[in-house]
């Protein structure tokens, strides 16, 4: 079952990498978060820990429901072009993602050489998710994708923390969740302001601002 969710997360990462429209990207992120929630729920059932149940619930409420809805609403209100502007097209992005996957797998095998194959795969998956988030932040033009990339990085870190060390302390986890939520709202407002001021959210064109 765990392997299945892991596979699903891998797939969602691929979806994020090849997405061309904001909506597709948000949906891919939602799928990713959902499988993250599923994985945490499985862990909670296995462990029987009440903390893990709460974290899983928060994941479901915030990352699967609230944040995607908020992002979709913003992208609708912006009335900007749906296109997220690719520096690298989908096919090449996919190839790059495969390279990233291989590097993450190699790296995790190198560091956690004494763990089992499943453990290594999980670490590789989390690294891939985080690196894919960074990849999206760098190679996609609009400001909304930067937010989603950051969220993907956060997802990857969450996965890494829960697999390597069995999850961060409960308080920290809760704090991170609220941090993420608040930062998404703030960044959303910023994007909205940027759009109002420049009539676009193309971050690449912000270079014109420098003196």
């Amino acid at each position: 079952m765990q392997i299945f969710t892991l596979f699903a997360i891998f797939l969602s990462v691929c979806l994020m990498a090849i997405a061309k429209r904001t909506q597709a990207l948000v949906i891919a992120f939602r799928i990713q978060s959902f499988f993250l929630f599923l994985m945490t729920l499985l862990l909670a059932i296995e462990d029987g820990n009440i903390d893990l149940y709460i974290i899983a619930g928060l994941l479901l409420v915030l990352k699967v429901v609230a944040i995607p809805i908020f992002l979709l609403r913003i992208s609708k209100r912006l009335k900007a072009s749906e296109n997220i502007g690719l520096f690298i097209n989908s096919q090449l992005s996919l190839i790059a993602l495969l390279v990233i996957m291989y590097i993450s797998w190699y790296f995790s095998k190198m560091i956690f050489a004494y763990d089992g194959a499943a453990q290594i795969a999980m670490i590789a998956a989390s690294l891939t998710t985080a690196l894919c988030g960074v990849f999206i932040m760098i190679f996609r033009m609009t400001a909304l994708t930067q937010i989603i990339g950051l969220l993907a990085v956060e997802n990857g870190l969450f996965l890494l923390a829960s697999t390597v060390s069995g999850g961060m302390p409960f308080i920290v986890e809760i704090a991170v969740f609220f941090d993420v939520f608040v930062s998404v709202i703030i960044m959303g407002i910023f994007v909205y302001r940027i759009n109002k001021l420049f009539t676009h959210i193309d971050v690449d064109k912000l270079t014109l601002l420098k003196g």
Binding site: V134, M137, I138, Q146, D204, T207, L209
Partner: peptide, 13 residues
């Protein structure tokens, strides 16, 4: 130092 956010992110990575 072109002022591009993408490039700065790339530097960080």
């Amino acid at each position: 130092q072109p002022g591009s956010i993408h490039l700065y992110l790339a530097y960080i990575v």
